[in-house]
Write a protein that binds this DNA or RNA. Structure first.
Lengths: 141, 141
DNA sequence: CTGCATGCAAACCGTTTGCATCCCC
DNA sequence: GGGGATGCAAACGGTTTGCATGCAG
């Protein structure tokens, strides 16, 4: 039912952005993706990357992750799942904790909001940062 | 054990910022708080508000909420609880859903991260926005 | 040929920071 | 009088946007 071609053209830029995003299991920021895409399309503009990520997110082709930290991150896996974010380096990974689908029922009873969904974000220290662990307040990437 | 006076001076600005934050059940952005505080301290600077919010968050006196949306929000209630965010107007409210404390155990089994905590953010449409509901893509405050 | 999409650069917005001054201890 | 805190304004970083050009249908 979702034929993207009805909604917008499938340009080279869009295809490559989506390909590069699908290629990685990390959840890159727009800038990281820009760098990845630029290796194949050196003349692409940052604005194009942002515009297309936004467009694809609106059409449910990808996920825009509103996780902690200053930058938004993008995810080619659109099925429901949770994330964990490294408190040291800011990296975001998938985490395989079962989705608690009845949370929205508990929520519905607890508020007068009309519930749309929920999201869980874990925080922790990633394996890479566990070694060099001297303080908790390292730089966020 | 946490005597803030050991850590930093309790200036008028800090007291009033904390008072104003404690006064509301919403979770104001730094700018909203700046406006609130300015009514009592007209010459206070935005930078002072940011610096003090940061400082108080570091000392566990308040919570810095890293919820969706572009702006950070602040919360004088430091005990564990979840939030719900209006998909239309961006407002953030507390939601009285019991904290799932054993989530971090499930998480620990599912990742090689060293788990520190978790957070749940619900999304929905707030009562105020339910009336004027014509599209889902309204402006974010 | 028409209009959507792009590249580029400037604008924007929230936040941070440098610096001179202020004020509490 | 000394050091942290403030007010102010400029800088910053991520994202958005306006505009002239390009290119696919």
């Amino acid at each position: 039912m979702n034929t993207p071609s009805n909604m917008f053209r499938l340009t080279t830029q869009r295809q490559i952005i989506l390909e590069e995003l699908s290629k990685v299991k990390t959840h890159p920021t727009a800038n990281e993706l820009y760098d990845m895409v630029r290796k194949r399309l050196p003349r692409i503009g940052l604005g194009t990357v942002y515009r297309n990520l936004e467009l694809m997110a609106e059409n449910g082709m990808i996920l825009k992750l509103e996780v902690g930290g200053t930058q938004k991150r993008f995810d080619a896996t659109t099925s429901d799942h949770y994330h964990i974010r490294c408190a040291d380096c800011g990296k975001v990974d998938d985490i395989d904790v079962p989705v608690i689908s009845n949370l929205i029922n508990s929520a519905a009873n607890a508020t007068s909001y009309n519930i749309l969904g929920h999201n869980i974000e874990f925080s922790g220290t990633c394996p890479d940062c566990q070694g060099s662990q001297m303080n908790t307040t390292a730089m966020e990437q």
